[in-house]
Design a protein around this nucleic acid. Structure first.
Lengths: 142, 142
DNA sequence: CATAAACTCTATAAAAAGGATAGACTTTTT
DNA sequence: AAAAAGTCTATCCTTTTTATAGAGTTTATG
């Protein structure tokens, strides 16, 4: 299961993309629209900003906005950024690999084998689908 | 990512299956063999017992043993028992569904749509693969 | 039938994740 | 120059997950 953080990030990104034509969007607007704690959302948007996905403008008329087009933001990237590994086991993760502490030899571990298949099937979807693919509204400017 | 609980459960079940010909297996043996905290493992085996997957025998010569053949234990069942939902989002879970608090209408939510596909791809593997498929050693008695 | 071996149960503690709060800092408008 | 409207940073509280401790119960067996 994805963490709340990642779930909120997706909803926030969707809102930002669908309102990209309106200039910087207030955190408070996203929080209200998507029913998310405003302060918690602050931290999440900040992480997305530090990762180069969002930009922000301070002062009156400020807010957050996408730095890339939705098509350039794969869903897998968001999950890895906020949740870490996508795989179900650490010993099967491509980006956050950790040696298995519970088995003798990963090379002949049947669990490793099955979970690799699950990872591949999941990544095939999440690395190819982007923010654009999960938008409801089509925004002409994008 | 699967919880430690579920990860440990898989390794314990593998050990039980691969040594099914030896009668009841001690918790301590599994814990040592698989490098798992013995007391934590106790709780896990108890849950598996209460779910009807394992049986136990008390007293000298006691221990845990499988109540079903490995082929009858789908991997998805173990995950659902110990971790709950397999899906990445509550609003997409078949067995642990919860309404989405962050979007207006799940029926037209693009996130819901993509995550349903991930769920289907994952379940296609995890519901068809069983404990038997992740064993290293072939035990004739099974 | 006493004893040791082994599982069972309840309570508690430590660590991580989720969520909430406060206040400092920055930019813009007037 | 100052107030308004935002972001940024740090800390704290609660819940869940992970792990530990110890008393209690059952069973084989000599």
């Amino acid at each position: 299961m994805l963490s709340k953080k990642t779930q909120y990030a997706f909803h926030a990104l969707i809102h930002l993309a669908e309102n990209a034509d309106k200039g910087p969007i207030l955190i408070s607007e996203i929080a209200q629209e998507k029913n998310i704690s405003i302060k918690f959302l602050e931290n999440i948007l900040l992480e997305l900003k530090n990762a180069g996905i969002l930009g922000s403008k301070k002062g009156k008329g400020g807010g957050y906005y996408l730095l890339k087009t939705p098509k350039e933001i794969p869903l897998a990237k968001i999950i890895r950024l906020l949740d870490g590994a996508i795989a179900l086991l650490p010993c099967v993760s491509l980006n956050y690999y950790e040696r298995c502490e519970n088995c003798r030899d990963e090379a002949v571990c049947g669990l490793n084998d099955v979970m690799s298949k699950v990872r591949d099937a999941t990544l095939k979807i999440l690395e190819n689908k982007t923010l654009k693919d999960i938008l409801t509204r089509n925004v002409s400017i994008l």
